[in-house]
Design a protein around this nucleic acid. Structure first.
Lengths: 189, 189
DNA sequence: TGTACATCAGTGAACGCGCGTTCACTGATGTAC
DNA sequence: TGTACATCAGTGAACGCGCGTTCACTGATGTAC
């Protein structure tokens, strides 16, 4: 083999990480293939050595985040406890798009509707989140699954709404309300 | 005046209604100006007689829905009671995009971020919704506003997630969980 | 009432731009002998 | 150890398409006289 498999895997990894950050920050449409390649110091031509298409890159980005999360979930790391996930998700850091791990927020509805591979990637992500929430809901007397699903909806909806509104104060209020109610639902506060 | 002002207003109205349905069904990007004009039996050229740009059309569409809702809100029509709004929002009808009134679900994040006029239109919409929820929460003992905000987040998040997932069963589960928890929060069930 | 004119909705071709995708080619590197 | 070869990452120009936007022009209609 003229170029090593390891090298290929490293570059792919790097591209996924960049894509991840860019997609989350700017949204699917606003990120061009040039942008992603440039972050890795490459030009557009070699993109197709790594991915079949832009939607493929997106789907793989989602899967990449999920894989990273999955690894942490079974350990003791408090970052992967449900309440911390919710706090991170609805944090100002994620809101200001400095950093964040939810690709859903930036994806236009038309692409989701068209591409089943993306929907499948999201599905895995959603299932994992809901599973964690369900597992970590402290008080098990009541129907958990509904609450776990609702917490996921609160996170995404809270962030989408906060980001869609012009007034920063209203945005913050929305984030904080979503967070407060989500924590209550999980009986984490 | 060679062509009547009334005519202008009628056509504009028709375009907004079409745009509304199309945007909601297919998402911002997937709807072209041609599509909107075709629904009114016109060709693309005259679009700019009515709107300054595509984003202007979008912003006005949002405002149009808000105006329509606002009229109904103060009457006795049960369709404008908070619990019915939530039920409609999280209904299968809205999910299947046969009909629906939330333009937020179909708008890509990049456009929201770029265009302040759209964010302002959304802001008005969000404020109105939250206001209705707040007003109609039956039990006033607890902090209402947080709950009202959370209900809005639940609606949007529930629908976005349901639409982003490949498995219809999971999608239905998500919708129903969001609905159930939203109704509980409003103490409407 | 009838005629000339001004206005503006509507037309459809053309423009321009962004961007995903393709392609012929280069050059570095690992492998075979 | 050294040399020829095959492989494949990487390049950058070019293609093609969709679509928002512009523009010169037409034609219908309300208004002025």
């Amino acid at each position: 083999m003229p170029t090593t498999r390891k090298h290929h895997e490293q570059v792919r990894e790097k591209l996924l990480t960049s894509a991840n950050r860019l997609f989350n920050r700017d949204g699917y449409n606003a990120v061009s293939i040039d942008d992603v390649m440039a972050e890795a110091g490459l030009t557009r031509g070699s993109f197709y050595t790594y991915f079949a298409s832009k939607t493929d890159l997106y789907a793989q980005s989602v899967a990449h985040v999920v894989d990273a999360k999955r690894e942490g979930v079974n350990g003791d790391d408090p970052r992967f406890k449900a309440d911390q996930i919710v706090r991170d998700y609805l944090s100002t850091t994620h809101f200001d798009a400095v950093d964040g791990n939810c690709l859903m927020v930036g994806l236009p509805g038309d692409i989701v509707r068209t591409d089943p591979s993306i929907r499948q990637a999201f599905e895995t992500a959603v299932r994992m989140m809901v599973e964690i929430f369900e597992r970590d809901i402290s008080d098990r007397a009541e129907p958990d699954r509904n609450r776990a699903l609702a917490i996921a909806a609160l996170c995404v909806g809270g962030m989408v709404l906060a980001r869609s509104v012009d007034d920063r104060e209203l945005a913050d209020e929305m984030r904080q309300a979503a967070l407060a109610v989500a924590l209550t639902l999980g009986t984490w506060s």
